[in-house]
């Protein structure tokens, strides 16, 4: 395999991005992914296993893995860490009670070796509901500023209205695609 073959393979590989969508149950992960994919979002039940979506976006092929967030399932999240380019963490901005649980889960996750290179996008979801905390407030709650060696962005959004979903994903893809090293 010479350089010309390497280049050909690389070109294909660079256009493929693997994203992992995680967060507590009921955060709206499935809703967001479905909305982004233009699917019907009226009839969504809690995810008991996982879903895989293949989306074309801006010349990239996104392989999006949406995993169920219920407590019993979280131990198995790591089955899916392999080769992850980007992590989307979805937060229910109204669920103030479980925010500390949410922060704990996130920080635990970010310590995972195999996710070290992944860019992080946090969706502060359900902004359409009254009483939703702002992205800023959630950033503080989750103590994102303490993250080292991690590119991240937090953005308020709504899986129902679709607001800011595009902006978030665009940032993530931009960040991943300008990366030079793979780990």
């Amino acid at each position: 395999m010479g350089l010309m073959n390497i280049l050909k393979k690389l070109k294909e590989k660079e256009r493929e991005i693997r994203l992992l969508v995680l967060g507590l149950d009921n955060a709206g992960k499935t809703t967001i992914v479905k909305k982004f994919n233009n699917d019907d979002i009226n009839d969504i039940s809690p995810t008991l296993g996982f879903n895989i979506y293949t989306l074309d976006h801006k010349n990239f092929k996104l392989n999006v893995w949406d995993i169920g967030g219920q407590t019993s399932l979280r131990a198995y999240w790591r089955n899916y860490f392999e080769n992850t380019d980007g992590l989307i963490w979805v937060v229910d901005s109204v669920d103030k009670l479980r925010l500390s649980d949410c922060a704990k889960s996130l920080h635990l996750l970010l310590q995972e070796e195999r996710l070290l290179g992944a860019s992080l996008l946090v969706f502060a979801n359900k902004q359409d509901l009254p009483g939703a905390l702002s992205a800023q407030q959630i950033e503080n709650f989750l103590d994102l500023k303490s993250l080292k060696n991690r590119h991240y962005m937090i953005i308020g959004c709504s899986g129902h209205s679709g607001e800011n979903l595009l902006e978030g994903i665009d940032w993530l893809i931009e960040d991943i695609s300008t990366r030079i090293f793979t780990f």
Partner: peptide, 17 residues
Amino acid sequence: LKSNSSTNEPSKVSSDV
């Protein structure tokens, strides 16, 4: 990106390299 987003609340970018 950061400078863009500062005018564009509520999104926010941070980085640490």
